[in-house]
């Protein structure tokens, strides 16, 4: 058992690319679900259209990188309106149904043979991150403390990522302390009451959906740039469910909970995964466990951990126990 390697990869996972991407997606979901009570089960699609919007602009049409970012953002906003206009006037569950279906439609369009000349089919798109890395201020080398270090490309992606997370958290903090955030939280509690007090509920729900989508789509850009490639299956529904897990793990409607939740989620996954694979190669586990099935066992164990957390701390890590108690009344 190589505990040093396990420890190093685990610590790196706490600030790594996956954590950044999932944290941004989860901040978006926290705005929509945690504060406004909107069940957006299609967050993966918001990241997908942003990532593809940028990648296709640059790789397929050979247009500038920044135009790609603008198109990615615009695509996200358009998607939010397309999903929101028909469903936000209806009961909450309709948005959930429509978004989960829309996310699958978006993914299947991206991987379809018909449009492979544009989206690249199941291989996706590459060769679009050149301009981004050309802006890299870090000279070649490794950056970090001792063994916990990254090369200059990863360092650049993570720097941008954590700055975006900081900005997103600052935004959420300011908004949720303001009267705007108060209306959002009130809508989560009871729409009709808010309507009876003269607030345009539809407009606020739309603003929350767009804002959550846009924050999430930043994660989509980073996902694509960090891997220097986009593939349709990165944006499957399980992506959305992991992001929801992260929000609930951290505690819904708390500013930093998605960030801490994302870090814990990935630390758990990486730690359990690496420990299991080290244990298997060292022959410490019964022959039932092989290199091929420990991936599934890893998710089982993490799932068990999350279940225990929700049983013993249902409000999440940052949640307020008093709020959960109110639901029981």
């Amino acid at each position: 058992m190589d505990w040093t390697t396990i420890l190093i990869t685990t610590v790196k996972a706490s600030i790594g690319l996956e954590t950044v991407v999932y944290a941004l997606a989860a901040i978006g979901i926290n705005i929509q679900f945690g504060y406004a009570g909107l069940l957006n089960f299609g967050q993966a699609a918001f990241l997908g259209v942003a990532a593809y919007g940028m990648a296709v602009t640059v790789a397929t049409f050979h247009l500038p990188f920044w135009l790609g970012i603008v198109i990615g953002l615009a695509a996200t906003v358009v998607l939010a309106f397309l999903l929101g206009i028909p469903t936000l006037r209806l009961r909450a569950d309709y948005l959930a149904i429509v978004t989960i279906a829309a996310a699958e439609i978006v993914r299947l369009v991206f991987r379809s043979v018909k449009f492979s000349s544009v989206f690249g089919g199941s291989d996706g798109r590459q060769n679009f991150s050149g301009d981004f890395f050309a802006m890299n201020p870090y000279s070649p080398g490794t950056y970090g403390i001792g063994p916990i270090s990254f090369n200059e490309r990863v360092t650049w992606v993570l720097t941008v990522g954590w700055v975006l997370i900081a900005i997103a958290c600052g935004l959420v903090y300011l908004l949720m302390k303001s009267p705007w955030g108060r209306v959002l939280k009130a809508i989560r509690e009871d729409e009709d009451a808010v309507r009876s007090l003269g607030k345009n509920v539809f407009s606020y729900k739309m603003q929350a959906l767009v804002l959550g989508g846009v924050v999430g789509c930043l994660g989509g850009f980073l996902f694509a740039l960090g891997q220097a490639s986009v593939q349709p299956d990165l944006f499957s529904t399980e992506f959305t469910f992991y992001a929801y897990t992260i929000v609930i793990l951290g505690g819904a409607a708390r500013v930093f909970s998605p960030v801490v939740g994302a870090a814990i989620f990935w630390v758990l996954l990486v730690f359990v995964g690496n420990t299991l694979s080290e244990a298997v190669s060292a022959g410490l586990l019964p022959s039932l466990f092989t290199v091929n099935n420990i991936g599934a066992v890893r998710f089982m164990l993490v799932g068990l951990g999350l279940m225990l957390l929700l049983i013993f701390r249902p409000q999440g890590i940052f949640g307020d126990k008093r709020e959960i108690a109110l639901d029981a009344r």
Partner: peptide, 12 residues
Amino acid sequence: LSKLTVMENMRL
């Protein structure tokens, strides 16, 4: 609005 304080309810 259960998870808002009495004061926040009023301000709304």
